[in-house]
């Protein structure tokens, strides 16, 4: 499973049709500074792929390129079979940021309704969907509170409910649990997997936590230090469903070690 040819290793995730996300030679420079070396990557439908790398390696930039929030300097990006711009305009993905990014002037319920409002849903339908989403993240009882009245973990669950409200086939998550304490973080990971078991959403997930990446993912894409490139894509063959026992599984520790060693090679070449 070692490094190998990055592009080849990465493309194993999909049989070649392109997958939900298909990156071909995508790179990003800021002026003369390369932030991201050319990256090719496929995310198969239903997969949970983590982008893991040291701070500043460009993994968030890569996610933002997929979301069409950042323009790549070169390469092609396809999301659900369409160019990234078109996919964004068709609302083919939901996004969760590191900060919950809730609007204080809206109640929790109306924060979840926000994307539906932008999309022109009728009020009754919005409300019903928001209710269902809040039940999904176990927050129906705080629907009428405002964001500052919730803890960081609860706020991030609201952000997840909001991202899933219009049932996108793809969820893009940029270090969503990075600001949370370890226990809350693990609870959020369990919750995310439970939600995914019910929705079947494909996830592209950015993190710098090795155990988090291994626990959640069907495969972990390990990136080098800046300018980021793919060192390896490591499939995670842990039994499903992942539970508390998974975190104690010897195979879990093996994989964590494997990922860590791959990561180290990228930091100190």
């Amino acid at each position: 499973m070692s490094a190998g040819e990055p592009a080849l290793a990465a493309s194993r995730a999909d049989a070649g049709v392109g997958g939900v996300v298909a990156l071909r030679g995508v790179s990003k420079d800021y002026g003369a500074t390369p932030a991201l070396a050319p990256v090719s990557l496929d995310v198969a439908p239903g997969a949970f792929v983590s982008l893991l790398g040291p701070s500043g390696c460009g993994k968030s930039t890569l996610l933002r390129i997929v979301a069409d929030l950042v323009e790549p300097s070169a390469g092609s990006v396809t999301v659900a079979g369409r160019p990234a711009r078109e996919a964004r305009e068709r609302r083919d993905y939901g996004m969760v940021f590191q900060a919950a990014t809730l609007f204080d002037w809206r109640t929790i319920r109306r924060n979840v309704e926000l994307p539906l409002e932008v999309m022109g849903w009728r009020a009754a339908e919005r409300r019903a969907r928001a209710q269902r989403m809040l039940e999904l993240v176990d927050l129906a009882d705080v629907a009428d509170l405002r964001p500052p009245q919730l803890s960081g973990g609860m706020q991030q669950r609201v952000a997840i409910a909001r991202a899933l409200a219009f049932e996108p086939a793809l969820l893009l998550m940029d270090e969503p649990f990075g600001a949370l304490d370890e226990l809350t973080r693990e609870r959020m990971q369990d919750g995310l997997l439970a939600i995914r078991a019910r929705t079947g959403t494909t996830v592209l997930f950015v993190t710098h936590s090795i155990p988090e990446a291994v626990f959640l993912s069907s495969s972990v894409v390990v990136m080098s230090a800046r300018p980021g490139r793919v060192l390896a894509e490591i499939p995670v063959d842990l039994p499903e469903p992942r539970t508390e026992d998974t975190r104690e599984d010897p195979r879990f520790f093996q994989l964590v070690t494997e990922v860590r060693e791959t990561l180290r090679r990228g930091v100190r070449p």
Binding site: A99, A100, D141, V142, P148, Q156
Partner: peptide, 13 residues
């Protein structure tokens, strides 16, 4: 989060 300093802990409800 959106209001870093102002939200010390969970005060839901």
């Amino acid at each position: 989060m959106t209001t870093p300093a102002a939200t010390p802990a969970a005060v839901a409800g």
